[in-house]
Every structure is written in structure tokens, then in C-alpha cells.
């Protein structure tokens, strides 16, 4: 490779690098403008989900205890109304993020899906909502009994998904139990 060829390659590379740097700078500017709006959106969506699963609460506070994180809900007099835990389950081709909330008596007040595999979008939303409503008022003890019983009907046409939901909700209640045990110490 002679000096002219090296110069040619260097010239091409430097031109490309300049254009890439300009586009990157533009993206950084755009990102710095959009990111606060995006974070605000995420916060707003999460708060809407919190109010769906723990409707009696007026404001929410993120708390950490041990290695667990949960959202504590409070009413207008600042009395605690319950706890919300985020359950993540994942397998090779599946991922589920689920909110499980319990009232002060440790019974489920609501369940909401935050993120799941898009394939489940084909299911009827009302069937899934009806499935989650069956959990309202249930405690961890009730769900442990359910392992051998059948008083919670699975989502129509989605037995394995119902099983994933059930396991995730049970895991959420177990997390709440650990949080309760840690907070009484």
C-alpha cells in the first residue's frame, strides 16, 4: 500500500468520522431534551398502575428493606393502605413483569401486568382482567391451598400463561411476607 492509498483511506475515514460525530452530537442534544419527558411518562404510567392495584391510596413511596424493594401506599391522612411489589419472572423466551398489591390485612387488592411477551396480546384483555379479579381478597395461605384446588379458573385458552401468572402472584405474596417479617424486626 503506497502513501497515496493510505491518504485516500484516511481521507474517507476522517470524512465519515466527522459526519458520524455530527449525527451523534445531534442525537445527544435530542436525547437530553426528550429524556426528562420520557422519565416523566414512565413515572406517570407507573403511578396509574399503582392506583389501579391499590385504589384507596393517594400517594406512593418507594421503600427498601433488606434486599427487597416495595411501594408503600398512603391515604389522605397519611395512613398506610398497603404495599405493592414488582415481580419479575423470566425464562428463555418469556418475560413477565407484574405488580401485586396487598392491603394492610395482607390480602390481594389488585394485580397488573407491566410487561410481558407480545404474543399474549392476542388474548382477550377482558379474560385476563377477569382472571386477575379472582385473586382479589386472597392471601398467600389461600393460594397455597389453591395448588391442589381449582377455585381460580385459568384464562380461557391460555393454561400455561395462567400458570405463569399464578406462580408470579404467589411469589409476590411471598415477597410481601418477607418484607413484613423484616419490618417487624
Amino acid at each position: 500500500m503506497n502513501i497515496n492509498e493510505i491518504r485516500k483511506v484516511f481521507d474517507l475515514a476522517s470524512r465519515f468520522a466527522i459526519v458520524a460525530a455530527v449525527f451523534t452530537a445531534l442525537l445527544l442534544v435530542f436525547y437530553s431534551v426528550i429524556d426528562p419527558v420520557r422519565q416523566n411518562n414512565v413515572k406517570r404510567i407507573m403511578e396509574r398502575k399503582y392506583s389501579e392495584v391499590l385504589p384507596r391510596s393517594l400517594h406512593y413511596e418507594e421503600k427498601h428493606i433488606g434486599n427487597k424493594t416495595y411501594i408503600a401506599g398512603y391515604d389522605k391522612n397519611n395512613y398506610p393502605t398497603g404495599k405493592i411489589v414488582l415481580v419479575n419472572t423470566s425464562s428463555i423466551n418469556d418475560r413477565l413483569d407484574l405488580l401485586v398489591s396487598v392491603g394492610e390485612e395482607n390480602k390481594i387488592t389488585g394485580v397488573a401486568v407491566i410487561k410481558q411477551n407480545k404474543i399474549y396480546d392476542i388474548l382477550d384483555r377482558s379474560d385476563i382482567d377477569a382472571y386477575f379479579r379472582q385473586f382479589t381478597g386472597k392471601s398467600l395461605y389461600d393460594l397455597k391451598l389453591q395448588d391442589g384446588g381449582n377455585d381460580i379458573k385459568p384464562v380461557r385458552g391460555a393454561l400455561s400463561l395462567s400458570d405463569i401468572y399464578f406462580t408470579a402472584i404467589k411469589k409476590g405474596l411471598e415477597d410481601v411476607e418477607v418484607i413484613n417479617a423484616l419490618s417487624t424486626k
Partner: peptide
């Protein structure tokens, strides 16, 4: 360099659109 440039420009606009949607049309 045109192919590289094309991919760069395409990625730039796609990122802009992606960020815009995340910001305003979540």
C-alpha cells in the same frame, strides 16, 4: 462509503423517531 453513510443516516432517524415516541407517544 455510501452504504455506511446510508446505515448511519437511517439509524439516526430511527433513533430520533424512537426517542420521540418514547417521549410523547409512549
Amino acid at each position: 462509503l455510501m452504504y455506511f453513510l446510508h446505515v448511519l443516516i437511517l439509524s439516526f432517524y430511527v433513533t430520533i423517531v424512537d426517542l420521540f415516541l418514547k417521549g410523547f407517544y409512549i
